[in-house]
Write a protein that binds this DNA or RNA. Structure first.
Lengths: 213, 213
DNA sequence: CGGTCATGTGACTGGCTGGTCATATTGAAA
DNA sequence: TTTCAATATGACCAGCCAGTCACATGACCG
């Protein structure tokens, strides 16, 4: 946790620091991200940074927590229809994930790095990974309880598939359809028939393969 | 490319160096892998290393090439039935990939890191990534030409799905079924009904979702 | 004014990195 | 035995890094 000093900072300065830290950790992995660079960018002394945070990992976990909170809030502000079927829910979930990626690219990138691993404190990586795994596992079990996913499907395996596909799908679509990005309206990507077609096709494949119909 | 000096080395010494380098780059990503550590391990002088290789990247690309060659040879030595359908071929391909992972874990790990990205020279990453993408793309197009994959499926999207699933599936299975690993016979993983069941289920899902039947 | 407490500072430490280079060793040919 | 090119060496360099600490600044209070 950041120290009290950090939260005592004037709002503007604190936010500026957060923004610069987000930029640093979005552009670089944990090892490559540099506190020296960050403080130089921010125009504060190295010592001041260590008045705000215990150490590098402290800042990083704080940014991760910010990202998790922002994403939860983002998803909560566009809640899905509760009566939605499992596959429709998954479609909604990943569409919302891409919206979030467009709206908060830095936060997304940092979370992506955490889940996808690479150089970062082992404990954090494990936490992020298992968090995602558990979530998808529950999703699948719920889907089977509701009769949306065939009971003979191995729940853990299906969770793995959802996890890996939807972790990467956003990046794939954004990379494939770069022209659709950058319009002021974050929803633009899904107004194009092309994006919707690809999206639906993935869901259709999974539903045909795992569904009960 | 390594310098001539490297290839002039006595076979035993050269192989020993390669083995230690494989260990170093399998355990650490490109940035974290350390030439200083490597030469200390090998008991040679820092300067000697730079008589053998241009620099760190030179060694790394050499190891990657070794890995690619070893894998190609491995796959070539268990060739699939040429009359095999596309999905059976994909099943064979990923099973062989896991066998390779069991037989040459260090080479696999290095290749995995290259494809999956993280800290490494951008040019190499791009090369590894697009190499895999192109391969799967061709696979899908061939599958459509043979009538195994439905023509209305977006070929690039399907290639993406195969790519992402089979890049991660090996690690998932190895992680989920660790007891099956470690037996002297590399083929052991697939003699267990459990592994075969999971494997078949993935293929079944994909075939039901993308096939023509 | 003096005191006290939170905050700010940047030179500094110790440790690591990839890479260089003048020098030493080796081994074989002449 | 002399010579000469290939190879081996490790001290050294510049550049990073995370983290520390003795000290400076500033603000509020009596």
């Amino acid at each position: 946790m950041p120290k009290e000093t950090f939260f005592n900072l004037p709002e503007a300065k604190r936010q500026r620091l957060i923004d610069l830290a987000l930029a640093e950790f979005a552009e670089n992995d944990y090892d490559t991200a540099s506190i020296s660079r960050l403080v130089a960018q921010a125009g504060i002394a190295k010592g001041s940074f260590y008045q705000y945070f215990e150490n590098k990992e402290d800042l990083y976990t704080y940014l991760l927590a910010l990202g998790a909170e922002a994403k939860a809030q983002f998803l909560g502000s566009n809640p899905p229809d509760p009566a939605m079927g499992t596959f429709a829910y998954i479609r909604w979930l990943s569409a919302a994930g891409i919206q979030f990626e467009l709206a908060r690219p830095q936060l997304s990138q940092i979370g992506y790095r955490a889940v996808r691993g690479g150089a970062l404190p082992a404990a954090l990586q494990e936490q992020a990974r298992t968090g995602a795994a558990v979530f998808f596992r529950q999703l699948v079990e719920q889907g089977q309880a509701r009769g949306d996913i065939a009971p003979e499907i191995d729940a853990d395996l299906a969770a793995f598939l959802f996890n890996v596909i939807f972790t990467e799908l956003g990046g794939y679509l954004l990379n494939r359809l770069p022209d659709e990005v950058g319009k002021d309206d974050g929803r633009s990507l899904f107004e194009t028939p092309e994006a919707a077609r690809l999206f639906d096709q993935v869901l259709h494949i999974l539903e045909a393969g795992m569904g009960t119909t």
